[in-house]
Amino acid sequence: MVGPEIHFENVKKRFDSVTAVEAFSATFKAGQTTALVGPSGCGKSTVLRLIAGLTGPDEGTVRLGSEVPAQVARRGALAVAFQDPSLLPWRTVRSNIALGAELARKPSDHVDTLIELVGLGGFADHRPAELSGGMRQRAAIARSLVSQPEILLLDEPFGAVDAITRRRLNTDLPPLWRDRGTTVALVTHSVEEAVLLSDRVLVLSDRPASVLADIATAPGVPRDSAYRASDTFRELSDRIFEALETGAVG
C-alpha cells in the first residue's frame, strides 16, 4: 500500500513571539522520500511536528491524503525517529523495537529481521545502557519501521551514528521504505544524505520557513556507490548548496 501524499497549504505557525513557518505551501509526494534541508532553527522540525499532528497550524491546512494528521496517527499509520533515540531504559533492544508495533497495534513478527538489518544482531537482549550511541540510534530507526507505517518522519536520525555505519545504513535502510511505498519526510543537515536518500529535496529559507527550491533528484537511478560517485550526484549537491546560500544571503 502506497502512503498518502502530504500537502501543506499556506500554513502559518507561531510560537509565542517567534514565527516558525509562514505562507508555507508544499507537497510531499505519495510513496516518495522528501528531504528538508535548511539552516539550523529554520523550522524544519516544526514542519515535521505539523505532519505528525503534534501541533496544529495557526493558519492554512495540513492534509495527509484526504485525512488530517490526527486521523492517520490514530490508525497507527505514522512513525517517527528523532535525533534523540528515546529508548526505554528498562526494556531490551528487542522489546524497545517491538514497542513501535505494539503502539501502532500492528503485528511484531519482523522484529528480529529488522534487528539483523540494522546490525544489532547479538544485542537483541541487551538494554540501551549497554549500547553505544550509534547502536541506540539504529534501534530507534528499527522501532520506527517495525509498524510498517504509511508515513515515516525522520528527524536527523543518523546524527549520532558513526561514519561507516551511517554509510551502511544509508544503503541498507532506504529499500525498506521505498519498496513498501512509504511516504517519508526526512530532516537532515547533510546535503549528500539528502541527495542520496530522497526523491526530492525541499530547500527551506531561514525563519519563518518557506520553500526556496524544490529539487527532484535522479528518479529511477539505483542508490548505490556508483550513484554516489556520479556527476549527477555532485551536480545535485551543488544545486542544493547554491540554493541554501542564496537563502542565507537573502
Binding site: A52, V72, A73, A79, S86, L88
Partner: peptide, 22 residues
C-alpha cells in the same frame, strides 16, 4: 521528556499510553 509524549502522540495514543508505557 517531551520526546516521549510526542512519540506517543505520533502513534495516535492517548496520554494513558504514555502513563502505561513510559
Amino acid at each position: 521528556s517531551q520526546n516521549w509524549t510526542d512519540f506517543m502522540a505520533v502513534y495516535g495514543r492517548h496520554p494513558l499510553s504514555t502513563l502505561r508505557y513510559v
